[in-house]
């Protein structure tokens, strides 16, 4: 069972580290065993995973906003139905991930509040605007493509509930990428104006998508322990390289130009990119991206305006429960 109800009383490993238990724990990780919610784990492992899984969940939920922007303006009923289904999937992914994060002992209410107050982060990519329909194609093709690269190794992550959630997510994510690429193919085979729109979207999204893999390996603050704990199986730069190598031929197929004139293929066949503007990444993370305030304001509004529904549902459940108790007593 992976429930917060069963975990809440387990407070003995939160502050005090126990050397013997820590080495037993590492031995289990080294033997590729899965760690389950009620198992002993170092406080730092719990904290790292709570941070990572909840940020991942927030990203899925905030990620509904840029795409939701185009549901009512999709160019056909087919596109509209697909986009609606995709945005529903993102919501579902957020919920699987919140459930996985909760097994570590923090309630969903606390996790959501940390996001709404701006304390918890979400993926920086969702702070960019979706200006045209081609952005929806580009997000599916590249943003979901990059997410898949990141998420497939997480299916083997040492923490059982996270790994299981990622297996479900990855199965569904493949539809997202294919629907995005289909939009791009259609635009690129369309009029010159449609193709220009596709190129313009690629120009704006390419660099932010490369930043999704996180800071370069020398600068990443979480990588070492995450690798030791088998939360992370590949480095940021390795995944970024894999993504670029997979994407270059796809862009070629579309007849689009990747907005990096300095990019060249090395002797190993890998595509080397020009330097990434990490100042832009830091600025967006710090809250100064084009849409940070919009995104948080939209989440807060939805949360506040939904409060009466949550309260009414709880009040109704309570009323029914007390009626049943009264009837039973008669």
């Amino acid at each position: 069972m992976y429930t917060q109800a069963l975990n809440s009383s387990d407070g003995d490993d939160r502050g005090v580290e126990d050397v013997a238990r820590a080495s037993q724990f590492q031995a289990r990780i080294d033997a590729d065993e899965r760690i389950e919610p009620n198992d002993w784990m170092p406080a730092a492992y719990r904290k790292t995973l709570t941070r990572q899984i909840s940020q991942h969940a927030h990203s899925e939920i905030v990620g509904m906003l840029p795409e939701g922007n185009w549901i009512t303006r999709a160019p056909s009923l087919r596109r509209k139905a697909a986009l609606l289904a995709k945005v529903q999937d993102e919501c579902g992914h957020g919920l699987y991930l919140y459930a996985a994060a909760e097994t570590l002992g923090t309630s969903r209410e606390e996790l959501v509040d940390a996001m709404l107050s701006g304390k918890a982060k979400y993926s920086s990519i969702f702070n960019y605007p979706t200006l045209t329909w081609a952005d929806i194609g580009t997000i599916g093709w590249l943003v979901d493509g990059a997410a898949i690269m990141n998420q497939i190794p997480l299916c083997r992550c040492s923490y059982g509930p996270y790994a299981r959630a990622m297996i479900r997510v990855c199965k569904e994510e493949s539809f997202h990428q294919r629907q995005g690429f289909e939009i791009m193919v259609t635009l690129c085979r369309g009029t010159a104006e449609q193709k220009a729109m596709a190129q313009n979207a690629l120009d704006r999204w390419w660099w932010p998508v490369l930043m999704m893999f996180g800071p370069p390996d020398q600068a990443s603050q979480h990588s070492d322990t995450s690798t030791k704990w088998k939360i992370k199986r590949f480095s940021n730069d390795e995944l970024r390289q894999k993504f670029i190598d997979a994407t270059v031929p796809q862009a070629e197929f579309l007849g689009l130009t990747i907005p990096d004139p300095g990019m060249k293929q090395n002797a190993n066949g890998n595509w080397e990119h020009s330097p990434i503007d990490w100042d832009e990444f830091k600025q967006v993370l710090a809250g100064n991206g084009p849409c940070n305030r919009d995104r948080l304001a939209a989440r807060r509004k939805a949360h506040e305006e939904g409060a009466w529904v949550r309260e009414a549902a709880m009040a109704y459940a309570e009323k029914r429960r007390s009626r049943q108790l009264a009837q039973a007593a008669e």
Binding site: Y2, A165, A313, M314, Y316, A317
Partner: peptide, 11 residues
């Protein structure tokens, strides 16, 4: 398959 939050069994 997993867990979820809801006010009552119907929801």
């Amino acid at each position: 398959v997993g867990s979820l939050h809801a006010a009552d069994s119907t929801l």
